[in-house]
Design a protein around this nucleic acid. Structure first.
Lengths: 203, 203, 203, 203
DNA sequence: GATGAATGAGGTTTCATTCAT
DNA sequence: AATGAATGAAACCTCATTCAT
């Protein structure tokens, strides 16, 4: 919740600040990130920062909100576009794929999320007791898949949701690290899907 | 690489320092961890700390080394004991299981590893360019399994190694969070294995 | 000495500013009082403030002047109305009484005066070397009383003037703190007068 | 409550810090007093300050405690020495006199007390709900005097206690301002006593 | 004249590390 | 070798005042 003043800023400057904040939080944890660095890089005076935001945490929360929103809209738009065309596993593929695409197009955002996930106190301050939102998301998908009869009913969905989350993160990391992955040949996705599908599909 | 003096310390005091360090680094990132807190909790003088270690990072590296060693020996001892009795999937089960057991018995060590994994700079400083040691470990296992003919040859092992790593971390986290998981009923493991095995096994 | 612009303001706005300033200076010392708070509460823009006043001190001086004026006129009007009807002690009673009444009716002004009295530097900046204007006032009264023959000639008027000042302040504070004092029963005044009169009256 | 470290300091340095603090708080309110100035004047590093005290308020509270203690012991020693020799008014004289002496010998302490008295929030933080400790002190004395039959029973002691407090402060201020008052000629005290005694004594 | 964003000096506090005993 | 005080470089944040529209 930035202050009014922030929203009144010319878009250009507002963006500079957001970009600077992303840069800083992508390379530093919340605690080691320096307000000074953000202000400097954004080309504003220290004092100005505090006219836009209550404090460092205020900016951080705002940023997280922004990123989540961006990512969700990104993923959903893909899903919504194709919802009817796919069965559960194709849907899952889309989710992973859009996740990867998002990460590739916004490589600085990945570490921010990872760092937040690792600062339990901060995470709780932002999301309350919601343990893990990503797993929740997968859990819903899985329940949908189960209802469709696509998933082996023997399988504990809660555990699989956790596993899918972990895999998504690891692979995303892998893909970004690698840098030069070309998602279009889809091999990595297919490999992964092949693995998951065999693991889940009802026989 | 602590200084000579550290190794010359009576075991009792050395342990107190290590325990204090674990406590601090388990609840704080490298940067927010305070040397003062460690010294205090260990019951040594601030000045003494710098007679045992070069600086904070020195202690940290040493600690990481220690933990890795401890974990590896933990896992390996289990494996070695049973190596001949199991096929690849049973081996994998043992690896995961011992990973969980280790985490449950040493719950403070998990967050330390997670935090390190998220501080790329620090990670690199410790492991050089070695991207991900856990994935390396799984990769070796997978190659062994492939050689045994247990694994579907279609599958890209490098990717699966990453996935296995991610799953292991996520599930470990899940198990620790939950707190009251009783590994003895093995259900969670079986669920997971069921999933993985279907995903990998040669048909 | 506010700027021209201030005096040109519509009375309503001018009053809002004065009221806001009183509120702020009644609850904060000169240094801790915030211009921002005053502007905000008065409903004017920060920039406007500096078009009305040179700076914070400018407003403050103006305010003090205003308050002194208000208080003096308050007291004098009572006195003047009744001057001929009373002897010295009755006059003194009126002074104290009107002092109390003023404080009760304007409870926010009391702390402002107290705080100023305690900031010697500020006080001097406003009143120059005039040590203590309240004592001066009492001194004049006392001299008048002495001339009338009402006061014991043995008594050093300068000292008594100081004492009367101190008592007035303390009692005013006492009365305001108490909150629910009903001046109409006059008991507190009579008690005080009884004490003072015995102390001063010529025998 | 300073930290251990402060008490372990060589007396010389400890005194330098106390002196510097007195200097700063005698000329600035709690809020405008600067830790920097104290450290500088005491000739210690900024960081050292925070090894001796929790924060600025910690030092301030300690200082107040110190001053109160000093003043009380000062007054009491005088009283105790002479308790049996004097009747109520002589005792009162001693109290005032020792109050003046204390102020003259410790002229920097007076403004500190005055400023505290004017910062209601701070005062309450230090003394809880105790409205006014000085008035309490006088009230006890007056009750003692009344019991002895020295004081006119018509008089409301609570009010007089307040008045005595106010007078004491005003006169102390007067005396210090004046600078060159020679208490030994006692005239000022006698004047004041003459006034008070007439006001209170039973007739 | 009015507005409110921009500025930056200045203050408190933290903590890794050094130093003196 | 052990101690623990000393140091000072940051970091965050506040607010009076100026500036640009």
């Amino acid at each position: 919740m930035p202050k009014e003043t922030f929203y009144n800023l010319p878009e250009d400057k507002r963006n500079r600040i957001i970009e600077a904040a992303i840069d800083e939080f992508a390379t530093h944890s919340f605690h080691t990130a320096r307000v000074t660095a953000i202000a400097e890089q954004a080309g504003i005076a220290m004092g100005s920062f505090y006219q836009y935001f209550e404090d460092k945490k205020d900016l951080y929360k705002y940023l997280i909100e922004l990123l989540v929103e961006k990512k969700l809209s990104y993923i959903n738009s893909e899903m919504v576009k194709n919802k009817d065309k796919y069965d559960f596993f194709q849907l899952l593929r889309e989710v992973y794929l859009s996740g990867f695409r998002f990460a590739i197009e916004n490589p600085r955002l990945q570490p921010i999320g990872m760092m937040l996930a690792n600062d339990k106190d901060l995470y709780r301050e932002i999301y309350g007791e919601h343990e893990d939102r990503s797993a929740d998301f997968f859990l819903q998908m899985l329940e949908y898949g189960k209802a469709q009869g696509a998933i082996d009913p023997e399988i504990d969905l809660k555990i699989v949701a956790k596993m899918l989350t972990g895999m998504l993160y690891s692979l995303t990391d892998f893909i970004i690290e690698d840098g030069k992955v070309n998602l279009d040949d889809m091999k990595i996705i297919d490999q992964m899907l092949y693995f998951i599908e065999n693991g889940l599909r009802k026989k």
